[in-house]
Amino acid sequence: MPEIKDIISGCLKGDRRDQELLYRRHAAKLYAVCLQYSGNDEEARDILQEGFIKIFENLAHYKHEGSFEGWVRRIMVNTALEKYRSRHSLRRVDDIDQIPEPDAEPYNEDYAGLQAVDLMGIIRELPPKYRMVFNLFAIEGYSHREISKMMNISEGTSKSNLSRARVILQRRVGSFTGLGKKLSHG
C-alpha cells in the first residue's frame, strides 16, 4: 500500500490516480464527519465535496507534522463550519433560561450498547447551533473561547448551547436505551 507521503507527492504533481487514491482512502471517515455536522445528506455531500477540493488545493501547505488524518479532518470541520455560517442565521441564546447542568459521572459501559449509527442519528437530530457547539466541544475538543471565535458567538452562548445540546442528547439516548434517568442524574 503506498505511503501517504508518496500519495501526497503524486497529488502535488497532478497525478490523477494518486488524487483518487487519497480520496478513496479518506472519504468514508470524512463523510461520517460531514454527516455528524449536517442535518441532511445533501448538505453532508456538499461539505464533503467542498472539503476535498480544499484539501487538494492546500495539500502543498501540509508540512508532514502530525497526522494527515487529523489535518484533513480539521479542513472538513472548517468547511462544515463555513457551510453552517452561510446557511444558518445565528441567534443569541444568552437570554435562554439557564439549563440545569447534568452531573458529571464516570463513563458507564451500559451506554456502549448504542451503535455508532444510533449515535449518529441522535446527534443529527439536534438543532444546528446545538449540534455545531456540541461537536466542536465534545468531539473535536475545542474550548468555549475557541468556539466563540469560530462561530462568532460569545463564550456564554457557546456554553448555553452546549448545555442545551447535552440535555437533548441525554433525553434521546435515554429514550433509546431506557437509561435516561441514569444518564441525567447518575
Binding site: 464533503l48 456540541f134 466541544f137
Partner: peptide
C-alpha cells in the same frame, strides 16, 4: 470537565465510517 454524554458520543463515533454516495 469530561461529561458522560460527551464521552459516549466521542468514543461511539471515533472510528465511524460511512461510504459516500
Amino acid at each position: 470537565r469530561e461529561a458522560n454524554i460527551d464521552l459516549l458520543f466521542r468514543k461511539g463515533l471515533k472510528d465511524y465510517e460511512v461510504l459516500p454516495p
